[in-house]
Nucleic acid binder design. Structure first.
Lengths: 153, 153
DNA sequence: AGGGATTATTTTAGATATAAAATATCGCCG
DNA sequence: CGGCGATATTTTATATCTAAAATAATCCCT
């Protein structure tokens, strides 16, 4: 094991940057659209999925949250008519979520704002820097922690 | 504005990596010590502050959370005797939090686990990579978002 | 010194997350 | 074809977080 703490320092900085950006983006969405970043994530996933929509399980996977969270975050979006929830005709257990026309329109506006904010925050980085950043991030592997914990047990 | 979406792609990756690590570390702390990552952050801040401890406001600042969250996250740590809360003798409004001997001991154990987990997760990166990563992260500026939002208003 | 503005923190109300229990439906085996 | 284990989702009980109201103590001006 190395004697310094380069990895911990990098991790603390990664966490601070991510939290800072997340808060700023969330504040932006709430202020301009009255929706949280979590709801934007839902709209984004459903927008990508297209007309077929996504089953609750698939949506949960893309959002990286628990099943319960998906049920809860979709509820206000349904109430406001941005997304709809249908039961799969082939499987009565499955729920299928999809964007409404209204939801698609609002998502487009939110995505444009999001894009502009992120471009601002990353303005100091060159395209090459951003590629390097992605390459480095790709090498970080959270799964190794769970593995290491299992080995220790 | 650039025509591609390099910044958004980098941001999404940054967010996913940060969330993944945060969840893995939190699960590690909960499983091995019965404490959340938030509580670890409190112990860490107080450990650095030393015997003098930190006022509630200073602690809030270091944790990057709201005042209310600080009150709430410290409560169970006080109940379990890991930290203590004293009123500043020179200012009856101010609360001063500091580590107890028991808290310092538990923090040392948690910090060792944390260090090992992070080293594992970052194992694929060279020390030079980690310096590069920190340099790139340092150039990302969430404050530009708030600024940009204000300008637009 | 008295009293209102300021400052420090806690409390409260509401949003969002998780884990686990509950509910509902499906699919298959005998 | 009837029932039981597996699967999909929701509900419930907690844990945290934020924003704003409430509480408490200090500062400072006249």
């Amino acid at each position: 094991m190395s004697d310094d703490r380069e990895a911990v320092r990098a991790w603390l900085m990664l966490l601070a940057t991510s939290r800072g950006l997340e808060k700023a983006v969330d504040a932006g969405f709430r202020g301009r659209f009255g929706h949280s970043i979590s709801r934007f994530d839902v709209l984004s996933a459903l927008d990508r999925a297209g007309a077929d929509g996504l089953r609750a399980g698939a949506l949960t996977e893309r959002l990286m949250v628990s099943d319960g969270a998906t049920t809860q975050v979709t509820a206000p979006l349904i109430r406001e008519g941005l997304i709809r929830r249908n039961t799969d005709p082939n499987d009565g257990r499955a729920a299928i979520f999809s964007l409404t026309k209204k939801g698609a329109k609002i998502f487009a506006d939110m995505a444009a704002g999001h894009r502009a904010w992120i471009d601002d925050a990353f303005a100091a980085l060159s395209p090459r820097d951003m590629k390097t950043l992605r390459r480095l991030l790709a090498q970080i592997d959270p799964a190794r922690i769970a593995q290491s914990r299992k080995d220790a047990a």
